[in-house]
Each structure stands twice: as structure tokens, then as C-alpha cells.
Amino acid sequence: MEYPILPNKSQDPRPPGAQCTSSRRRAVMLMAFGAVALLAIGTALYRAQAAEGESPASAGEKAQAWDQIETVGEEDEWVETVYDDGKWIIIGERGIGIPWYDVEPYQIPIRKWEDIPMYPCSDCHDKWPVNHEQRPMVEEHTDLVVDHGDGHFWCTGCHDGRGLDFLVSKDGRFIDMDLSYIQCGECHFEELKDWEYGSHGLRIGLWRGTRVLRNCVECHNAHSPAIAPIEPNAPPKIRGNLVRFSKPAVEHSEHSKVWERVAPKNN
């Protein structure tokens, strides 16, 4: 089992080549398939590559991703509308993080270059020393609300001062920002299992073929993961001449809960 988690903390996390071991392996595979793959990539890949810039390994990943997606979809236009080009990352043949033995392969979107604001963090944090003290944020990140872990969490619990472009696991290994679900799963392992097997979370794209899953943080804000109530969409509309036949719902609450009905008798 290969983990795309950096093997040890002594290694310098910054150089792009150190992103993950499996992508190195794929880079080798890519070289083996060489020109064929490059031809197959096409213009979409070119754009994707331009967007991602400095990571040739993930360009290979995208090539493979596009290849798979196109064999699944019938109509290119739908693939285009459903998949923003060049945003996928292949996680591998198995689920990552916890080695469930029979998890079907899946893909997740790349977020770190475009969708994570201010990434890479090292742009600023290279210049400032990390302050481990728990304190209110007054200069930067003032909009960040940490409502997670009942007040026990502080930035450095997940982000490590030694390399802020990465998350850090409980045993001190670095985790790529796009693989953040591994870190979520360290506590929420039941949810991670459900997510990998497909009973939790969103599958995007097609029902058939390679699964493309939304990452945890696309729905849950990692800093305050609870989802606030929202206004529901409009209730069913009744045909004009029938409105008088449907009266507003009666409040059933006082009858429906059996424990409330039996309570007075026992008092």
C-alpha cells in the first residue's frame, strides 16, 4: 500500500517533486507510454497544464483522468459542462488513508491552486515565523471562525508550522492539501469509510465508470464544519381553483410523540 502522504517529516516538503510517491510512479509510467499519451492529451490538457504550471506529474494524472472520463461519457459537451477541465486528481487504484480492501477507485477534484484562497500559504508564511500561541486573529485571517472540536482546536493542530502548504497528520506526516479528507478521516473514520464506499457525500458526474467524489471540504468548511440551516425552496403549489380544499397543516406535535402522551399518567 502506497500512501501519498509524505513519508517522513525530515524531508523538505517544499520541492514539487516531493509531492507524493504515487505521482512519481505515475510519472515513470507516463514516460513509458511517452508520446502516445502526450498526443492523446490534446488542448484541454494544455490548458490544464498551464493552470497548474509547475507540476508535470499531475499533468500526467489529468491525462489519465480525461482518458477515463471520455470513455464513460457519450457526449463530449456534457463531459465539458460537468467537469471543469483539468481539475481532477487520480487517487489511485485503492482508497487512500485507510486501506479498505475493496473500495472502488475514485477521483477527486484538485482545489489547491484555484479554489483555496491564498494558496500557497508559503507565499506569506515563509516570511513570518509561526506563532503557536492561541490568540484572537487581528491582522490576518480575521474572518476565520474555528467552530470545530469544541474549542480544543488551534491552527497548528492541522496546519504545521514546518510546512504550511501541507496539512499534518496525527503521526506527524505531511498531507497534500487536496488529500485533506485523509486528515478528516483521522477522527471521522466512520464518515470517511462511508464516503469512500459511496454512502456519504456527493458523487459528481456520471453514475457509471470512475467515481468522481466531492472532497469533504467542498461541502463542510473545515474550520466550522456544521452546516447552517437555510431557507427551504417553495412548498408545492396548488392549482388556483383548489386552494380552499387544502387547509394549512394542523400541528400534530402534541399527539405524535408517544412519550409525551404517556408522561402525564406517570406523574
Binding site: 440551516p229 431557507e231 412548498p235 408545492p236 397543516a249 400534530h252 406535535s253 405524535s256 410523540k257
Partner: peptide
């Protein structure tokens, strides 16, 4: 539906509260 029962006859089809989910 009220939590604690799945009896459809006590369901509300036209709920229109400010926000959902409502507690309970």
C-alpha cells in the same frame, strides 16, 4: 415529520418555515 415516527398521515407537505431543518 416529527422525529420519532414515520407515520405519513402526520406529515406536513407544505412546510414553509424560515429555515430547515427545524429541530425535532
Amino acid at each position: 415529520l416529527d422525529a420519532g415516527s414515520l407515520e405519513l398521515n402526520r406529515s406536513d407537505h407544505y412546510y414553509d418555515s424560515e429555515t430547515v431543518p427545524q429541530p425535532g
